[in-house]
Nucleic acid binder design. Structure first.
Length: 643
RNA sequence: GCUCAUAUAGCUCAGCGGUAGAGCACUUGCUUGGUAAGUAAGAGGUCACCGGUUCAAGUCCGGUUAUGAGCUCCA
């Protein structure tokens, strides 16, 4: 039979040859590092027989595919077996690979906690030491069921039962045949290929990811082909930990949380300073882009939420308020707004709108409250009280495309100014359950799509992921360490204007419902500031930094000069502070460096006499002595780059 | 909301049945020092909250609240 290789060359091999035979035929080095094969695009075990002409490529251990197969074997054959050895009563569920690692879900009567990971790792090492080969048997559905019934593995039975295939269930065994796992394969040919690994954490996870199902114990691990790669990965995790905005927020004295108000931020002066700077930056951009800023109530009668549909669909996430009966002369139920949109429609509805008024772009730094489930909160990233850079555009269907284009260019300008040069766009189209005619959806979807195309941005389409009320665009930015954050959103809405009776008088003299577009660029200030802190590891760009310059005196006799420098900087709207403490300069440098102050100006006798300053920038160990006037000029310039 | 873990001084953490500890930060004294921690002394705690076991509970047990890692959720 004829085997075609990836470089389009071909070889003749006898029928029934395996990938291993092929590798051997090509060269001994390849045979040594081969772990699996791809036959006509499908991954197979290295020793699977090939019966017909096909195109085959060998997967080696050092390839990405090989690494993934190694992780897969590690979890399904080694971790699973180790768990069964240590916890014989446990039931195996599933054990897939994930980015950088793998996990295995098991049901266990005994509690397995992170303290037990060492013990499990040791057991895994014992298993690996055997360097056992891995073989498989192909069995029918009924045989597979029999095997796992006798092994008392109910989750495997469920998996087999729910499968639509009747034959070719793959059972993988190690040499001693004391352990068997059901698996789609492929696996390593033997355990000698297992590299360096570490179990990282243990947590709960629902069977099949459904919160109605029972909670299983999930054991996570990470694995690489070499110790070096593993260490690199662990170092990266540590680096991410160093950037944690909750840790930096404490160190930089930006904000805190406390028990009495879970999920609500107590902003400290420096943190609030970042917030204010960011807000005025956004406000300025919105003003220039035709938005009209408004402000609407926080506490609104349930009647409006009933009319908008939130009372029905969103109530479990709403903070509902009641007025103390003793003091109230009327009983009414209010809710803290979880969204601004219904209130924006109320503003729109005051007065009669003409098609000539459209588009109307309302913006609000809308303070919202949502009752998030307790386990979901996470620092500034997921809170219960937050402020959106929210906006609603009321326009005609024909204006959707031009509004989309305007929005995207505003968004990309803002992201770029904030240091995020690239972002991805995701277009979500009509879901199965939706309102509005197909004709309207056609029009709206193509309006969004055309706008992106004309701006020549790449985008992905997520079929069926739109809201029931209209298609949407999501904007995902990538931070300095490669993590993705969905921030911006642009959602057409055919529903709410109708429900809340928003209308305009058209050219034809008749009343029509406008399209309403919900849009945000940052998402929420709280979350975005969290993202900024982590992206910059606390070292915010000069214009965003809460303390921009600290003037540190080296000896007390120059304190008056330090104050003079501070005043000059303050005159230029620079946030400058002085440090006149009776401490050594190295102490002061350490202190302010750890607080991520962008510029430290050290001042001693020499500087006072020469009317200079010694400039030290965060992230640099060098200092530069500059003429005072020149330094102020430079700092002023730096502060104005983004505005 | 679910699983597991955690909660001790302003911060980071040790203590794990027998009268509460360290480092840093803070206050005071000495020190005026040239770019990431000078030095000595002092002050600082209902050991998250409620209950139980015990002669005796930060310490063991139960509950509550919050936090962390995941899961689920985030029209």
């Amino acid at each position: 039979m004829k085997i075609t290789l990836p470089d389009n060359s071909s070889r003749e091999l006898p029928e029934g040859s395996s990938g291993y035979d092929l590798a051997k035929d090509i060269g001994p080095g390849l045979a040594k590092s081969a772990v699996a094969v791809t036959i006509d695009g499908v991954q197979k075990d290295l020793h699977d027989e090939i019966m017909t002409d096909s195109s085959v490529s060998i997967i080696t251990i050092d390839s990405d595919e090989g690494l993934e197969i190694m992780r897969h074997t590690l979890t399904a054959q080694v971790l699973a077996r180790a768990i069964k050895n240590l916890y014989p009563k446990s039931k195996l569920a599933i054990g897939p690979t994930i980015e950088d690692g793998f996990y295995y879900d098991v049901e266990s009567e005994e509690v397995i906690s992170s303290d037990d990971l060492n013990k499990i790792e040791e057991e895994m090492k014992k298993i690996i030491k055997s360097k056992s080969s891995i073989t498989k048997k192909l069995v029918s559905k009924s045989e597979a069921m029999k095997v796992f019934k006798s092994n008392k593995e109910p989750y495997k039975e469920i998996i087999i039962n729910e499968s639509d295939q009747d034959d070719n269930f793959q059972l993988y065994y190690q040499e001693d045949e004391k352990f068997v796992d059901l698996c789609r394969g492929p696996h390593l040919p033997n355990l000698g290929f297992i590299g360096s690994f570490k179990l990282t954490k243990v947590s709960g996870a629902y069977w099949k990811g459904d919160s109605n199902n029972s909670m299983l114990t999930r054991i996570y691990g990470t694995a690489f082909n070499s110790d070096k790669d593993l260490q690199q990965h662990l170092d990266n995790l540590e680096e991410a930990l160093k950037r944690d905005h909750r840790k930096l927020g404490k160190e930089m004295d930006l904000f805190h949380f406390q028990d009495e108000a879970p999920g609500m931020v107590f902003w400290h002066p420096y943190g609030w300073n970042i917030y204010k700077t960011l807000q005025s930056f956004i406000r300025n951009k919105l003003d220039k882009n035709g938005y009209l800023e408004i402000n609407t109530p926080q506490v609104v009668d349930r009647k409006l939420w009933e009319a908008s549909g939130h009372w029905d669909k969103y109530r479990e996430n709403m903070f509902i308020t009641e007025i103390d009966e003793e003091h109230a002369n009327e009983k009414r139920v209010n809710a803290l707004k979880p969204m601004n949109c219904p209130c924006h429609v109320q503003v729109y509805n005051q007065g009669i709108r003409s098609y000539k008024d459209l588009p109307i772009r309302y913006a609000e730094f809308g303070s919202c409250h949502r009752y998030e489930a307790s386990g979901t909160m996470h620092g500034l990233m997921r809170v219960r009280g937050f402020t959106q850079d929210d906006g609603h555009i009321f326009c005609t269907q024909d204006q959707i495309e031009s509004e989309t284009a305007l929005f995207i260019s505003l968004l990309s300008e803002i992201y770029s100014d904030l240091g995020f040069k690239e972002f991805d766009i995701k277009l979500s189209t009509r879901p199965e359950v939706r309102i509005g005619s197909d004709e309207v959806w056609d029009k709206a979807e193509s309006a969004l799509e055309n706008a992106i195309k004309k701006l020549d941005y790449p985008y992905k389409v997520d079929e069926g992921d739109g809201a029931f009320y209209g298609p949407k665009l999501d904007f995902v930015l990538t931070d300095a360490i490669g993590r993705e954050w969905q921030c911006g959103t642009f959602q057409a809405d055919f529903n709410l204007p109708d429900r809340l009776d928003a209308e305009y008088v058209g050219e034809d003299g008749n009343k029509h419902h406008p399209v309403m577009i919900h849009r945000a660029i940052l998402g929420s200030f709280e979350r975005f500031i969290g993202i900024l802190i982590e992206n910059y590891a606390g070292k915010l760009p000069f214009w965003l930094a809460p303390q921009q310059v600290v003037i540190a005196s080296i000896v007390s006799e120059v304190n008056d000069y330090a104050i003079e420098v501070q005043e000059l900087l303050k005159d230029q709207d620079v946030r400058a502070e002085i440090d006149l403490r009776n401490e050594k300069i190295s102490y002061k440098v350490r202190d302010h460096s750890s607080k991520k102050v962008p510029i430290i100006l050290a001042i001693g006798k020499k500087e006072k006499i020469d009317q200079t300053v010694s400039v030290r920038r965060i992230g640099s160990n060098d200092t530069e002595v500059l003429d005072l006037k020149e330094a102020i000029k430079q700092i002023k310039k730096e502060n104005s780059i983004q505005h």
